[in-house]
């Protein structure tokens, strides 16, 4: 492995939640106010993931603030300023970048919730954990196991439709 990859690897956090476009997340950001530091929460829909795997990966969260003003913030996934990321729910979306949400207002700007695991990513279990108010990070380690069980389910569902 080359030196640059190693340096990047050292920057990465040990555990980071698996995010997808459409997910509703709660990002806990450290903010410096004068001399003291506090945690600020930014909750919204992930509308874009940027970059491949590595310390430079970022994601954009959109939330509707007061008076219906849309606010978007881009975070570096591995930034030390991010205390924690909670994935509250998964969205059922058909594209990787949800920039179309900017033009939508009110009910049209919603993202349908995805209840079925997608491609066997072990999503259902993660959602259960989020509901239990637990940090999402620990699950990412378990994921390889879930892939095997999750994949079997959607395949079974598809069969009746095809017949």
């Amino acid at each position: 492995m080359n030196v640059i990859d190693l340096l990047q690897r050292e920057q990465e956090k040990a555990e980071v939640p698996v995010l997808r476009s459409g997910d509703t997340v709660r990002v806990h950001v450290k903010v410096v106010e004068g001399t003291r530091e506090r945690i600020q929460v930014f909750e919204g829909v992930v509308i874009a993931l940027h970059g491949k795997i590595g310390s430079g990966t970022s994601f954009t969260v959109r939330r509707i603030a007061s008076h219906g003003v849309g606010v978007e913030r881009t975070f570096l996934l591995h930034s030390p300023r991010i205390e924690r990321i909670d994935v509250l729910r998964h969205g059922d979306v058909r594209r990787a970048k949800l920039f179309y949400l900017r033009e939508k207002v009110g009910k049209r700007a919603r993202v349908r919730e995805r209840r079925q695991p997608l491609g066997g990513g072990g999503t259902s279990l993660r959602r259960a954990a989020a509901a239990a108010e637990e940090p999402v990070e620990p699950e990412s380690a378990e994921e390889p196991d879930l892939t095997a069980t999750g994949e079997a389910e959607p395949a079974g569902e598809l069969e009746p439709e095809n017949v």
Partner: peptide
């Protein structure tokens, strides 16, 4: 070797 980016303690 090349370029990359580093996080500082301030983030």
């Amino acid at each position: 070797v090349g370029m990359t980016q580093l996080f500082t303690e301030q983030g």
